[in-house]
Design a protein around this nucleic acid. Structure first.
Lengths: 202, 202
DNA sequence: GTTATTATACCAACCAGTCAGTATTTTATT
DNA sequence: AATAAAATACTGACTGGTTGGTATAATAAC
């Protein structure tokens, strides 16, 4: 029989598996049996650790989100605001390229969030966390005179981050890796460039 | 019993209903029974007109796409290239706001296309059609001296259109109409602005 | 009466979730 | 250390509901 593990270990294994299977087959085509099997467990065990399929995925989403947001915050620690923005976005691209399954799983969650309030809550919280990181950077840039003082920091950050999301999304659909980073970098350069205080650069 | 209609009429009714129900409940939670019922028909009738659920949705997607692409092409007929770009994107925003269900259905199709080759084919074709409209405008702008001649017309168009997609996507998720057009317009203005030939504007 | 269209009744597969019981590990007792 | 008791982790067969798809009968249109 399978070796017993602590609840923490199993939960972590299970949502890792959940994200993988979901990325491969999509949320609705993912069966709890397959998730359990991928951990060498039975469905019963999965239901020992989680109340429902949705509960499992909500936990998995939360874990993914926490990790990503803290990595992004780290990535934004750079000398100038422009550098910080460019580096943060390049970090996001690198993450999606290094872990394509996370990108796919995220897309699934976005869509789920349109109809399931619990998912919606967490996706909103996720979005707010990420945007907050960007807003801080933009504010800093404005205060230091690096960015145009008439900039609305929230709108500017949304434009930048959501544009990246758009390109990432389409990359998932089109699957043309050779264009992906190029287009994204072009976009980021243009956008961050447009934030600069042309009049009196520090 | 329900009045007999021509195949064309019924097909049109059925994919209209398919799109609606799909927007409301998502593709996987949409049952063929509900689609048929919404047309006052039974499931048997639906299967008389379409081979399968997938066949129905592929037809529906195609109809939606054809209509939208031709409307976009019309919207891009403007004097200057900047005007054409701004107007095209504003047209897209207006469409999403006027027919939110189309936006939701499109999101469903995007995600479906990740795993179903038939959907992928059509979504790619859709994307190419839309981008082609933009590329023509950008080329025209470059030739007329309005846009920076070093611009890569394909990359530039992708940046613009896909950024809009990103903002639209996030709008679906966040559902904050009061920010939507503002952010999108800010995005469009910045991006199209960055295309301009600063040196020798015509 | 023949063909096109719609309705009814049905089936087989699928799948989330349950549960009674089993195996393993930990803790308490002597 | 040995053993008993309790807690934790796991199993897999079963259930109940759902749904895509089909077979066949009924009805309308020409």
């Amino acid at each position: 029989m399978v070796r017993h593990e602590t609840a923490e270990t199993r939960r972590a294994q299970l949502f890792q598996a959940a994200l993988e299977v979901c990325a491969e087959n999509g949320y609705h085509e993912t069966t709890v049996d397959e998730i359990a099997a991928r951990c060498g467990l039975s469905k019963g065990s999965l239901y020992y650790h989680f109340r429902s399929k949705e509960d499992l995925f909500l936990s998995a989403l939360e874990a993914m989100v926490d990790q990503f947001a803290s990595l992004l915050a780290q990535a934004s620690e750079r000398e100038t605001a422009s550098e910080a923005l460019v580096h943060s976005t390049e970090f996001m691209i690198a993450q999606v390229e290094a872990h394509p399954k996370m990108g796919l799983a995220t897309a699934e969650f976005y869509l789920l969030s349109l109809r399931r309030p619990e998912f919606r809550k967490r996706i909103k919280a996720y979005y707010d966390k990420l945007i907050e990181v960007g807003v801080q950077v933009v504010r800093r840039g404005i205060e230091s005179g690096e960015f145009d003082p008439s900039l609305d920091s929230l709108v500017a950050t949304r434009v930048l981050f959501l544009g990246c999301d758009g390109v990432a999304l389409m990359q998932l659909v089109l699957n043309e890796p050779e264009h992906f980073s190029g287009v994204t970098r072009a976009f980021v350069a243009r956008t961050v460039g447009s934030f600069l205080n042309k009049g009196n650069a520090k």
